[in-house]
Amino acid sequence: MEKTYNILFAGVGGQGLMLLSAVLGKAAVDAGLDVMTGETHGLAQRSGSIYVHFRIGKPISPLIPYGSADMLIAMEATEALRYIEYLKDDGVVIMSKNIMHPVAETKAVALDKTRKTKYYTLSAVEEQLRKVTSRVIALDSLGLAIQAGNARTENSVLIGAAAACPDFPISSEDLKNAVLSLVPPKTRDANAKAFELGTEAGTACLQ
């Protein structure tokens, strides 16, 4: 692979972002590609903003330069916008429609007696993202996971959607195999289904 393909993963602590990155890492390595990541570990608190810089091909630095990510995969919608400086013009955004509201925002919404203060919405996120790219895949990842038979297969939905992108450097087959080899054996069927639902939904969004 001559070019480097850059993916920025974003999410909220506790969502399993590291596992998502590990699955993709295995898929890339099994496909014979070189991989490098820059990860957020450390403070164990949940509910903080976290990211993984994930680079396939010929990366040298573990960090993606601004404006150079081919893809942004967000497990929470506002987190996609939080790292938007990394996305190249017309890069792909794959994001869950799920929004986890920060507590300070909840307080502002609750205490405004005029009820004018509203939560930051999914459509506001999408509107901002579309100023940078037309390729936004917003998925009801939880709904699709439940449809697949297991609410905990949201990661597979998102990876399945990545496989729908024509320029993605890892084949759908390799991606799926990596997912299935790393999930608990009894959830394999649900994960396979989640992956397929993700691919279908992703394909639909890109058309």
Partner: peptide, 21 residues
Amino acid sequence: YLERAAELKRDLPERVPVFCP
């Protein structure tokens, strides 16, 4: 990219660390 991002994120609520549920 940095300037554009700052503009796009102007109204995005901050996610400050909190204690776990």
